[in-house]
Nucleic acid binder design. Sequence first.
DNA 1: ACTATATTTCTCGAATTATCGAAATGATCC
DNA 2: GGATCATTTCGATAATTCGAGAAATATAGT
Lengths: 120, 120
Amino acid sequence: MDASLAVTALGALAHEHRLAAFRLLVECGPEGLAAGVIAERVGIPASSLTFHLQHLLRAGLATQRRLGRQIIYAADFAAMNDLIGFLTENCCGRGLSARLTTAAACTTIAESSLAKRKAP
Amino acid sequence: MDASLAVTALGALAHEHRLAAFRLLVECGPEGLAAGVIAERVGIPASSLTFHLQHLLRAGLATQRRLGRQIIYAADFAAMNDLIGFLTENCCGRGLSARLTTAAACTTIAESSLAKRKAP
DNA sequence: ACTATATTTCTCGAATTATCGAAATGATCC
DNA sequence: GGATCATTTCGATAATTCGAGAAATATAGT
């Protein structure tokens, strides 16, 4: 993932309603959720929701598929992992070569969850 | 970290120049970098840079201190770790409690490549 | 074909964000 | 105290984003 893609993804998540919608999608897994349900749960009109879902789609953070008369959105976990990978490597002191004593500060998280996912 | 704080932080990073500046700060570690140097390296006028650095400050992603006649900015690694922690727990399928068989799916994706993500 | 349902597109005003030069502030050196 | 360097604040302008209703599109059932 390059910086400009990351900016797009970050921007897509940097909004109350979009973050809420995305978290909802994450909760539902690959199965996804119909647009109407998302709108209702997030508490915004359908047209507004579409506007925001388009953001997530453009950023590659969500996918869309039709199921009968409804359209199902699902979180794209791979994209989200890429984003977290980018942040971890480029914005957190990790993945930056030796001259950083900073690495230690960040190692904390490295243990707890991901980080070893992409051994150099 | 709560959602609204995360939105602020994501928004702060969701801009080409701010992300560039922040990455620069991360590279420099706690030692930080003078505003002038950042402006030069990012390639924008000083007044524009200030505007963006204020964003990072407000979001808690950077700190400010004066050193002689220059003002040194440094990345706040703890805040960044909090953000990554939030994303990992709330937006990535991990850290979501039991009723999710989805968690497994996300982990799988993380490990391998993804491809078969579209299973019913 | 007609009706109902689900969602998107369109449109436009309001609000926010971005850009940059000029002027103001703060600190240092003589 | 005056000159100078580093940075921020101000102000004007341009661009983008947001919100929501109305109209349009697609699907399903009768």
